[in-house]
Design a protein around this nucleic acid. Structure first.
Lengths: 204, 204
DNA sequence: CGCATAGTTGACTACGCTCAACCCTGGTGG
DNA sequence: CCACCAGGGTTGAGCGTAGTCAACTATGCG
């Protein structure tokens, strides 16, 4: 959903981008490193972690394929967190200065970029809104409706383990499992192997 | 932090912006309204609420003076939520189409705008990260350190009721109160009337 | 001098987390 | 072809902690 569409990428910039392959556990950059590029994950998954003053590490964000990371690098001198590959990953590297000037010179690119940023803001807001719902089963139901909504479908198909979904919405796998079971008991959803069918969900 | 600096606003656009005064409780726009403008709160405070299919209302975001709202309007046809003034407020209205063309034509403006969006993303990420901390007192401590950090200060002064702070970080006022009391008992903070002093917080 | 609102404290409840056991599936190798 | 194994998923029992409801205090304002 927050893909940087490369269609509008001007040829000059296209020559400047490069790729980087990462092994699991390998770092793309460290907290405090000079910010020299902006990235988009092509395949794999990266974890952004922040080391706080007391040395504890906090996961800032998980970035999956198609998503961007370190946008802040464009207007900041250093990375505020470290990025580490969780799986073998391949990321597209957009060098900071060339990207900035491309954004200045190619309004189409800038517009796509802004649209992407705004989509990301919306997505973050939705995820934050989700966290306000205490009851696990209601949170899950709203989440399901949210991801079903754009597609106008009432069927949700997961492409990753439920435990990942659980982490995404701030629940443990056990609680998610119980919530889904409860929703099914209450007739709100129906489950087949990998899919979830929303019932009577007069979607907004 | 996510102010749209108006310095770079070209004269043509400057003529097109207007202002709107809102009484407490008055709506700036309703959910589903055609998206015709993007806004910045000059004074006051607005609440963005979303009405879900089951009629329950969910606060999407609180927008305070200096902050922008409804960026999504620029690339979307309708507002996904309603905006209601909590206090007497004055908002700057940037009509959508003129702003879009200004962003295309004035790279400085576009750059400022992008920087603002990226700052907003960062802020949202931080707030989401906060929610992952279960223990109330630890969440509060991290929150305090976060808002103290930029100013290099170890003193935090609140300009709004604690109950608002509590809602912001996803706690009830009672729990926040207890968390602050506990932090004080443990010597992590010191409280005066309106200020909180962080102790030994070797700030990052 | 009340009144409204914010903040604090207490008692109780509820629900999500933790730990643990168990089931089920898919893959591997004998 | 079956035995085994690993991982995800489910289910159960118990605990901890944030929410809820309520009472009380403090503050600011008419």
């Amino acid at each position: 959903m927050d893909l940087l569409t490369l269609e509008s990428l001007p040829p000059q910039l296209r020559q400047l981008i490069s790729y980087r392959e990462l092994e699991p556990g390998e770092a793309l950059f460290q907290q405090g490193d000079e910010a020299i590029a902006f990235f988009v994950v092509e395949t794999g998954r990266l974890r952004l972690v922040r080391y706080s003053s007391d040395g504890k590490e906090v996961t800032f964000q998980i970035t999956r394929s198609g998503e961007s990371l370190a946008e802040i690098a464009l207007f900041s001198n250093n990375y505020p967190c470290a990025a580490v590959a969780e799986l073998s990953s391949r990321v597209i590297v957009y060098p900071k200065q060339p990207l900035l000037s491309a954004l200045r010179n190619y309004p189409d690119l800038a517009e796509d970029f802004m649209a992407m940023l705004i989509g990301k803001i919306h997505d973050l807001k939705v995820r934050l809104e989700l966290r306000h719902i205490r009851a696990a089963h209601e949170r899950v139901l709203r989440y399901l409706r949210y991801i079903a909504d754009p597609s106008e479908q009432t069927v949700v198909t997961f492409d990753r383990p439920l435990k990942d979904i659980a982490a995404d919405i701030g629940l443990t796998p056990e609680t998610l499992s119980r919530a889904l079971a409860r929703l099914e008991r209450e007739g709100k959803i129906r489950r087949t192997r990998l899919q979830i069918l929303l019932q009577n969900s007069s979607a907004a």
